[in-house]
Amino acid sequence: MTALKPGLRLKSGVCSAEVMIVKGAGETSLTCGGVPMLGADESADGAAAVAAEMNGCLVGKRYVNEDQSLEVLCIKPGEGSLAADGAPLTVKQAKKLPSSD
């Protein structure tokens, strides 16, 4: 369990993935490849990835839980897939282009 807050950076314990919390607060178990994600100064404890949770996450995509109370941005890609409290996160719909820039 990690206390999440916007701006927090977490890294995968099983692959190269990194995420930043965009929305969501409080105690949540955020996992990548089935293994809890780590803070910047934590190191992996050697836990093995869950094969069924190795479907990858794409850099630049925003991932949400079912009720969209949690949203994370993938800032480095990896082979693990993201989940919160055991439920897989899904890709949020692509950002709309602005009408002018």
């Binding site: 807050k5 916007p6 965009v22 949203e71 950002k95 709309k96």
Partner: peptide, 19 residues
Amino acid sequence: VNLPRLSDWELLAAWLETD
């Protein structure tokens, strides 16, 4: 700072680490 998309405003809490 250029924020032309609604989704840019949603990222400000993460950018500035405020909850």
